[in-house]
Computed example of a mutant assay.
Amino acid sequence: MTAYVVTGTDTGIGKTVFAAALAGALDAHYWKPVQSGLEDGADADTVARLSGIAASHILPETYRLTQPLSPHRAAELDGLTIDPARLELPQHRPLVVEGAGGVLVPVTRDVTYADVFATWALPVIVVARTGLGTINHTLLTIEALRARGVTVHGVAFVGDANPDNEATIATMGGTRRLGRLPRLPVLAPAPLAAAFAAHFDLADFA
Score class of each variant (00 low, 15 high):
145 L>Y: 06
186 V>C: 01
138 T>W: 11
188 A>E: 05
194 A>H: 10
194 A>Q: 13
140 L>K: 06
190 A>E: 14
193 A>I: 04
147 A>W: 00
158 V>H: 03
175 T>M: 06
159 G>Q: 02
144 A>I: 04
134 T>D: 03
115 D>I: 06
173 G>T: 07
129 R>T: 11
161 A>L: 13
125 I>Y: 00
114 A>Y: 02
155 V>I: 15
158 V>P: 01
105 V>K: 05
129 R>A: 10
160 D>L: 04
136 N>C: 12
184 L>I: 02
128 A>G: 03
195 A>F: 02
131 G>P: 04
157 F>P: 00
163 P>H: 11
136 N>S: 13
161 A>S: 13
104 L>M: 15
183 R>P: 00
104 L>Y: 03
177 R>L: 15
191 P>Y: 01
118 A>I: 08
192 L>S: 12
149 G>D: 12
191 P>W: 00
139 L>Y: 11
174 G>Y: 05
112 T>H: 11
175 T>G: 14
112 T>F: 08
193 A>R: 14
109 R>P: 07
108 T>R: 03
143 E>G: 11
159 G>N: 01
127 V>N: 02
141 T>G: 07
158 V>S: 07
117 F>L: 13
124 V>D: 07
128 A>K: 06
139 L>F: 12
136 N>Y: 09
146 R>H: 10
131 G>W: 00
106 P>D: 15
115 D>Q: 10
157 F>N: 00
196 F>A: 11
172 M>Y: 15
172 M>F: 15
143 E>Q: 14
181 L>V: 02
135 I>N: 06
135 I>C: 06
106 P>R: 07
113 Y>T: 09
185 P>T: 04
195 A>R: 03
166 E>L: 14
135 I>F: 13
181 L>R: 00
186 V>T: 07
156 A>M: 01
173 G>I: 11
137 H>L: 10
146 R>Q: 14
139 L>P: 07
186 V>S: 01
158 V>I: 07
163 P>G: 06
194 A>G: 07
132 L>M: 09
140 L>V: 12
111 V>N: 09
141 T>D: 06
138 T>Y: 12
164 D>K: 15
122 L>S: 03
194 A>R: 14
108 T>V: 09
190 A>W: 01
109 R>H: 12
160 D>A: 13
112 T>C: 09
172 M>D: 06
175 T>E: 11
195 A>I: 08
160 D>W: 00
190 A>N: 06
105 V>R: 06
103 V>L: 10
107 V>L: 15
116 V>A: 09
151 T>W: 01
168 T>M: 14
148 R>S: 15
170 A>E: 11
147 A>M: 08
192 L>E: 05
128 A>D: 04
184 L>A: 02
119 T>G: 09
157 F>L: 00
120 W>N: 08
109 R>D: 15
159 G>R: 00
174 G>C: 12
129 R>P: 02
170 A>V: 09
148 R>C: 14
189 P>L: 01
196 F>K: 11
104 L>Q: 12
120 W>Y: 09
181 L>T: 00
171 T>G: 05
129 R>W: 03
109 R>E: 15
142 I>D: 10
148 R>Y: 09
187 L>H: 04
118 A>D: 11
115 D>R: 03
190 A>Q: 13
116 V>P: 05
121 A>L: 09
